[in-house]
Design a binder for these strands. Structure first.
Lengths: 213, 213
DNA sequence: TCCGTTATTATACAGTTGTACAACAAGCAG
DNA sequence: CTGCTTGTTGTACAACTGTATAATAACGGA
């Protein structure tokens, strides 16, 4: 008698975890937070529902892992764009902007993941910690670039505050653009962000240098 | 025999709807999107679950109505702050900023409602329409003020783009501040926003005037 | 005082949720 | 080829979900 087809294939825990994470990302994109259950994820990954509980504490844990995973991918995409650009701070900043407003960063599916994650931040201290780290890392890269530009051009600025403002603006533009791309265009967002850099270089935001931290 | 205590009190439909909306807001704040069900809202409003279905199509419809309601309240809070300020455009803009970063606008509970609503935008065209209107109204007020300032100071600027950028920055600061108030402070947000206005008045964002819409 | 309207309740139903558990079997070590 | 580890399955369970339904009763108008 011929050897029967294996009814399932065993995976290393980390491999299986990654597959479940990717299935979760697809579920969030396709069905939203409400439609993303243990069973939905298991179906998408073509495994039994019980397996999810075996690798993760629950659906919330899975969403956090998904955020962590795609967060890393986003950071990589931004990092690669910067590596491909000239090494001066202004070019780096502009490369960062360009990468922020095109796939895979500008992506409706990504927003669905972000929204789910944000809704967990309030109740779970562990989630809050992950958010803090991701957000702070992200902002620190911009802070360093802004400080570089100010140093090269020999003007004073509170790079910390400036980076907070710039980050907030990028986030706000990204959010609204993902929510509804018909209100304004990707090109609008690019012009606005680049204009902010123009203004920074021209010595704008002088008020942010009055009380350095 | 004494008249028995009425087992329930009848309300006019719009009164009951408002009570259910307020109960929904409390549920979203307390339990998040996942914990806000028809039954949870009914329990919070101390009515039977069936009543929710009698006044609203479902939980999504209720969340949209809640967004509409609190959205109006936020707009009122901002409007009142501006009415209390001097009538010149700069003062109006600064009053708008101050009101944006204190209760009832800066409020964790408000963010919970916003997050739930945003997660509905993608799938429901009706929700998308409401979002578009609220967001556009909000931004138009700022656009008018920015255009006023530019006109008074006799410099050119694309007020539409500038308002988009300013709105995005305010939204981004508001979002992060509600998510986790320990990363930066309300005062930081205020300084950043006011610095943006300082810069605008000083003739910043000249790049935004190059290709007026 | 009675009557009609309809807001409200209470209940039933089918479907879905998260979680637990015992049985199973794939793949590796010997 | 054998045995062990453990990734994986399938199922059972109680709690919950949205929705529909008929019965109830509050309240205003006659």
């Amino acid at each position: 008698m011929a050897t029967a087809e294996p009814r399932f294939t065993r995976n290393q825990p980390d491999v299986r975890r990654r597959k479940l994470i990717e299935a979760t990302a697809q579920c969030l994109a396709e069905f939203g937070h409400a439609g993303t259950s243990v069973r939905a994820v298991a179906a998408k990954a073509k495994v039994s529902p019980g397996l999810v509980a075996h690798h993760f504490q629950g659906i919330d844990d899975l969403i956090v892992a998904t955020y962590d995973h795609v967060g890393r991918r986003v950071a990589e995409a931004l990092g690669e764009a910067m590596e491909a650009a000239p090494k001066d701070a202004e070019s780096q900043l502009r490369a960062f902007i360009e990468a922020s407003f095109k796939p895979p960063v500008l992506d409706r599916d990504l927003l669905a993941i972000w929204l789910s994650f944000w809704s967990l931040v309030r109740r779970d201290p562990g989630v809050r910690k992950v958010h803090k780290k991701v957000y702070t890392d992200y902002r620190c890269r911009l802070e360093a670039l802004i400080a570089d530009i100010a140093r090269a051009r020999r003007f004073k600025i509170d790079a910390h505050l400036a980076a907070l403002g710039f980050t907030a603006m990028l986030d706000g533009l990204w959010l609204e653009l993902c929510l509804d791309p018909t209100i304004f265009s990707r090109e609008d967002a690019l012009r606005i962000a680049h204009a902010w850099v123009d203004d920074l270089i021209a010595g704008g935001f002088r008020a942010l240098a009055l009380r350095p931290r």
